[in-house]
């Protein structure tokens, strides 16, 4: 892939569920190795965006290119590049931690998954529980295993949809340390490579800590995009509130029946 080609490129992306429009013409480019954090209120279309990027949902209009490949025609090839962490852990309760990873390792055609499974379980702090059933794990442990599953095939792109949902502060801290490592900010125990990461989170503090660039998605539109350098949570909070409020006001005014109203 040429250095000029962005890792992720969305052009006029739209998604509608019947009459409800979730995404309205999103244009977005994420460079190779960049960490983009998307903030937005509930119902803004963030999860829909991640589902489309991860090939779980088809867009209604527009195009998605990942690694220079069109998602419509090369979904199978693109999935090989993607690691996805969502609110749901995407794991099997009745398998052990290592069985889950071995199973997904086979699906990703890893030639020898065992060393990778062991290394990842150690990395997420679950080596001592590798033979335990996932159903016996706490929410934080399940989420750590979900992260190990997402990293199993060493993906070039990580898509993280509120990965810290339901985590206690300690587990959330561990997760964000791992993300900082993967995004190349800390290379002490990682491989030093920078993954392209798209994260969706409600936590301004944690989001800004791992972001190269931030965006705000509100009412299905990207209403703000800027480099994260120099942005502090205190400075970003008013910007966030202002853009979300403006998007909501705009949505209310353009709704049929409200036009011309106050």
């Amino acid at each position: 892939m040429s250095a000029n080609v962005p890792m992720i490129e969305l052009r006029k992306l739209t998604k509608a569920f019947g009459s409800k429009v979730a995404l309205r013409g999103i244009d977005l480019r994420v460079a190779v190795g960049e960490s983009l954090v998307i903030f937005g209120p509930n119902g803004a279309g963030k999860t829909t965006l991640i589902r489309i990027l991860s090939s779980l949902s088809r867009p209604t209009g527009g195009s998605v290119h990942i690694g220079g490949l069109d998602l419509r025609t090369h979904a199978d090839g693109i999935r090989r590049y993607l690691g996805v962490v969502s609110h749901a852990p995407l794991l099997y309760d009745s398998l052990t931690a290592e069985e889950n990873l071995r199973f997904f390792g086979r699906l990703y055609s890893l030639p020898d998954p065992e060393p990778r499974v062991t290394a990842l379980l150690e990395r997420v702090g679950l080596a001592g529980r590798r033979a335990d059933l996932v159903r016996t794990f706490s929410r934080g442990m399940v989420q750590r295993l979900a992260i190990a599953r997402a990293l199993l095939h060493d993906p070039a792109v990580l898509l993280l949809d509120e990965p810290d949902t339901g985590l206690d502060p300690q587990a959330a801290e561990m997760l964000h340390g791992l993300l900082a490592e993967l995004s190349g900010r800390q290379t002490t125990s990682g491989d030093g490579l920078r993954r392209t990461i798209v994260t969706i989170t409600h936590s301004l503090e944690r989001g800004l800590a791992i972001a190269d660039r931030v965006a705000i998605l509100a009412n299905g539109r990207l209403v703000y995009e800027a480099p994260a350098a120099g942005l502090t949570p205190a400075a970003f909070r008013p910007l966030y509130d202002q853009h979300c409020a403006a998007a909501l006001r705009n949505a209310y005014q353009t709704r049929p029946g409200n036009r011309g109203g106050g």
Binding site: R79, S86, P89, L90, D93, S94, Y108, S109, V142
Partner: peptide, 18 residues
């Protein structure tokens, strides 16, 4: 139904398999 638990069907669909 077991594929719905913890969203594991989505996990299968994310894998690069036909």
């Amino acid at each position: 139904v077991i594929e719905q638990d913890k969203g594991s069907l989505a996990g299968l669909l994310l894998a690069p398999v036909d």
